[in-house]
């Protein structure tokens, strides 16, 4: 399944898993900064949603509407848990599926749009979902849904797999592990998609949709699938954020969040599967650390972003020396050149 992964990359993966599952909790226990748990959990959850945005970019579409699907997922899980008393573990995947269904419904018309038109309509989507949640009764209007219970325990045949979060001594740690597991799963899925037949088809579409279509790629089918997967990630991320904060409001995900998801992806670098993770870490953590600057927070933050763009317009990961065998990086470079020459 992952037979094209080199031993060096396995080592890197092992180091990464060790870092997030062992080193970070140890570091936090040693320094006593337990507030980092919340920040890092948010980073993990938002990077799942950003991973979805990255995937839509992979078929050449700029998606600034992930906030819409995250909000839809957050509301779906909150309604299922509070109104219909579903178990969290059932509501979480169903929230993702709900977002994916919404994406299919909306995607049928809007995926015909390209370039800047698609970007603009997705930007409007966040506002649509927000207004819908304000207008509907089941979402409780502007008051939102609060007091969402923590995830309950999960047991199969009497064997407890996951303990009840409400009874946990440290639910923050539980959420952190859960978010990290989901993030690892999400990015493993992304990696698998990119290195599969679907990934090759996506790259062909990123470069030239007409050409891809002419050699028999069913482009409308693929872009719908990719958009649905992307929104599934958004829905999962949103549902988890709702569960973490135990509440969801129409303002939980705003247009700014949608723009942030896009920024995460761009900053990490569009040609790299793990770009969204790094971008989210830098942006969210950077924003959090700048809290000490008080009223200058936004000024410093945006100045750093602009400077980063001026120095590294192709994303942070473009710093990495390109390995000759990395076809993902090569494809990204090729398509980049294509865009430049096509002007």
């Amino acid at each position: 399944m992952f037979n094209n992964v080199t031993s060096k990359q396995w080592m890197g993966l092992a180091a990464f898993l060790f870092a997030i599952f062992v080193a970070v909790p140890m570091f936090i226990a040693a320094t006593g900064r337990t507030d980092f748990y919340f920040t890092l959990t948010m980073v993990a959850l938002l990077s799942i949603a950003s991973g979805g945005v990255w995937l839509t970019f992979y078929i050449g579409r700029i998606n600034i509407g992930q906030g819409a699907f995250a909000l839809a997922g957050a509301y779906a899980s909150a309604v299922m848990i509070t109104k219909f008393s579903f178990s969290f573990w059932l509501a979480l995947p169903l929230a993702g599926v709900f977002s994916a269904l919404v994406a299919v419904l909306i995607g049928l018309p809007i995926l015909r749009l390209r370039g800047v038109y698609f970007a603009m309509i997705t930007l409007v989507l966040t506002e649509v979902v927000k207004l819908t949640s304000l207008a509907l009764d089941i979402t409780n209007g502007a008051r939102g849904i609060t007091n969402i219970p923590r995830p309950d325990g999960l047991s199969v045949f009497g064997l407890t797999i996951i303990p009840d979060f409400g009874a946990m001594e440290n639910p923050k740690l539980g959420f952190y592990y859960l978010a990290c597991v989901l993030m690892v799963l999400a990015f493993a899925t992304l990696y698998r998609i990119v290195n599969s037949r679907l990934g090759h088809l996506c790259r062909s579409m990123q470069q030239n949709e007409e050409l891809a279509s002419s050699i028999g790629v069913n482009i409308s089918h693929i872009r719908l699938i990719v958009f649905a997967i992307s929104s599934f990630f958004g829905g999962i991320g949103g549902a988890m954020v709702a569960s973490l904060t135990q509440s969801v409001y129409p303002n939980t995900f705003q247009v700014k969040d949608s723009v942030d998801f896009m920024l995460n992806v761009f900053l990490g670098g569009l040609g790299y599967v793990f770009g969204p993770m790094l971008g989210t870490l830098v942006i969210y953590f950077g924003w959090d650390l700048l809290f000490v600057a008080k009223e200058f927070q936004l000024l410093i933050y945006s100045t750093i972003l602009i400077i980063l763009m001026l120095i590294l317009p192709n994303g942070i990961l473009s710093l990495r020396l390109k390995k000759p065998g990395s076809d993902v990086a090569k494809a990204a470079d090729a398509s980049g050149l294509e865009l430049k020459e096509g002007k």
């Binding site: 970019f57 700029i62 970007a119 723009v259 896009m262 920024l263 761009f266 900053l267 569009l270 009223e295 200058f296 936004l298 000024l299 933050y301 945006s302 100045t303 972003l305 602009i306 763009m309 317009p313 192709n314 990204a332 470079d333 398509s335 980049g336 050149l337 865009l339 430049k340 002007k343």
Partner: peptide, 26 residues
């Protein structure tokens, strides 16, 4: 001039929007 993709300007534009917001606030 430097970026490989036209879309990179979107990030820059969003960052400028944040910057102007900060300047207006100050």
């Amino acid at each position: 001039k430097k970026s490989a993709r036209d879309e990179s300007t979107m990030l820059l534009a969003a960052a400028i929007a944040f910057l102007l917001d900060a300047v207006i606030l100050l």
